[in-house]
Design a protein around this nucleic acid. Structure first.
Lengths: 350, 350
DNA sequence: CTGAAAGCGCTTACAG
DNA sequence: CTGAAAGCGCTTACAG
């Protein structure tokens, strides 16, 4: 008895279209038209429209998006696929995606595949059964062949129906290497990305190209790869440990991303190498902690929010079939952010 | 003509239930039963079931989740509301939520309200029209009265239908203050949270209570509030600037969260105060950059992923109407993580 | 063991 | 200007 009382004292149960129409003495057709502001609504007298809106308010009516989806075969929903929800990079891109999507009344599901292909496959199929109209993939290679448009942040697939938002790696490599070279660095070590990172190859290719242009030699023993799979500074620490096992003969270090750079700094410190006195360190991304790190991390900033925005916008355009915008690549400019982790090399290190 | 060709060469259009049933010469009833593994399916011959599954595979059939939602009045979807998608805290909690949700085939929409009440209200109503079965709110006070269950991470609302996942602030305060006191600190400064943070009041209340127990005096001039609204270390810098304007007579600083602590360290450094030699700093949360910060940040760890998990699980239980689990508060234990930012006070600072 | 039929809550082509 | 009716793709109570 008490329970019954409680429940009935809750907020009013919202009405559905049929109830609202009955309440107004109108057809569901008419009510639907005014509520969804369809073109046909123009022909409905203002007085009637007003009545409808007021009654809707009063009866707490709100059209069911799921019924509408079924009828219109349009879900106003997209899927966002990420490796994992983590610090910095993913979060910033997500935030840009959300901005662009919600502006257009689109909602999104997010799923993280944790680099497990079977999970990824499963999620894609679940997303499709939920009727998403498109997918934006962050740092996740997708096959295409999905019947729905895809926008890929940091992807590099040339396939119809996929638009890739990428940072201009050539410019990035030039900014970084030129900065180091102009400080006087010649012996530069590199931490490359993990194989699963979609930017790894393109970034390295650009670095080699630019190094050649700047006549900087890349010594094999000064190159290591990130091995561990974690969105922390761990992989960078582990890689730096290996690097130091191979050689200590370098005055600068270019890390695949900021997390790795921050990890590298910790490991260098443990080996009594000071940054930037003994080794200059430069990262990539400009995640929030790059600025608060001590010393402040010099890095190549990717406009991550903007990339997320662009991806979402391109996806919506593709969904709407605006073929004019169907480019395969949308490239975005990086920025060199100079902080305290880079300096002239010590003279004995030249 | 060319376009037409391209399109038809794409992946096969998936079949719907009707087509699949026709293909098999069975009723939609039967096919639906086997595909959704309904209890009634037990009575269907294994051979038939096999045929159905094979045909489904072949015709690329997958039940429409939106049609099912409409029919069952169940969306298998919840909404997640956050202030913003940002570093550390939110991302970790989200990740725990995702874990628990996807295990149960629930998907989630995320929306960020950026501390704008009208946005929040709007999103809640959109989520409801999309038929979410519940909402988990992160660091966002919700009124209740929504007709669907709510799980709140770091919330403090006592209302039927809301379960709050909170860290035990008394234990946290005890860990932090006891750590500082046992190092010998007596003059402790505090940076409190912003008014919009749902933990602000509870945390401060606990600190005062524990300070009294430990016979530590809290001097008003050693207390400042975070003012800025940003998920960066900025607010902490600004607050520390004000604190130093009020007094320099403190040997330790307890910041509302790690971001603020990291900002405080930057500002202290600018004022030539070294951490931990001149000032010990302790934070709250243990976000990833707490560990990579230099010096490593001593902090009170909130088990953020676990809190997200718990919230999602409690929400699912409430959705299923498992009243036995209807508690208003689920409290979780913090951990003191000692790193390098705290030490004994200098003797002249005592 | 199996199926015909109703219905979830909308939108919209069609008719008047 | 307005409405009756069909239908989106499922599930499920009911009947046999």
């Amino acid at each position: 008895m008490l329970r019954r009382l409680r429940i009935s004292s809750g907020p009013k149960h919202p009405a559905n279209l049929k109830q609202l129409a009955a309440h107004l003495g109108l057809s569901t057709t008419t009510v639907s038209r005014v509520m969804s502001r369809t073109p046909a609504a123009a022909r409905i007298p203002a007085a009637t429209q007003k009545r409808v809106f007021e009654a809707a308010e009063q009866l707490n009516y709100q059209a069911s998006a799921v019924a509408r989806s079924l009828r219109q075969k349009k879900s106003f929903t997209v899927g966002v696929i990420v490796p994992e929800i983590s610090e910095g990079y993913t979060a910033s891109v997500l935030s840009g995606i959300e901005d662009a999507l919600l502006e257009q009344d689109y909602f999104y599901f997010v799923v993280s595949h944790r680099h497990r292909p079977e999970l990824l496959k499963n999620y894609i199929s679940m997303l499709q059964s939920r009727g998403v109209e498109g997918i934006v993939a962050i740092d996740t290679p997708l096959d295409g062949g999905l019947r729905i448009p895809i926008a890929s942040v940091s992807g590099h697939k040339i396939r119809k129906g996929i638009v890739n938002i990428v940072v201009d790696h050539n410019v990035a490599a030039h900014q970084a290497l030129n900065h180091l070279a102009s400080l006087g660095h010649k012996k530069i070590a590199f931490i490359r990305g993990q194989a699963f990172s979609s930017d790894t190859k393109a970034r390295w290719r650009a670095i080699r190209k630019v190094a050649k242009e700047l006549k900087l030699e890349i010594a094999p023993e000064r190159v290591v790869d990130l091995r561990l799979d974690a969105a922390t500074s761990e992989p960078g620490q582990e890689a730096t440990e290996r690097l130091l096992g191979q050689t200590r003969d370098f005055s600068a270090l270019f890390a695949f991303n900021d997390l790795a750079a921050i990890g590298a700094m910790a490991t260098l410190r443990q080996h009594d190498l000071r940054v930037p006195r003994d080794v200059s360190v430069i990262g990539f991304d400009d995640i929030p902690s790059a600025a608060t790190n001590y010393p402040g991390l010099t890095t190549i900033r990717q406009p991550m929010q903007q990339m997320g925005r662009l991806a979402a916008q391109a996806l919506l355009e593709a969904i709407r079939g605006e073929e004019s915008h169907h480019k395969n690549f949308l490239s975005v400019l990086p920025t060199l952010v100079i902080r305290k982790s880079t300096a002239h090399p010590r003279s004995d290190k030249l």
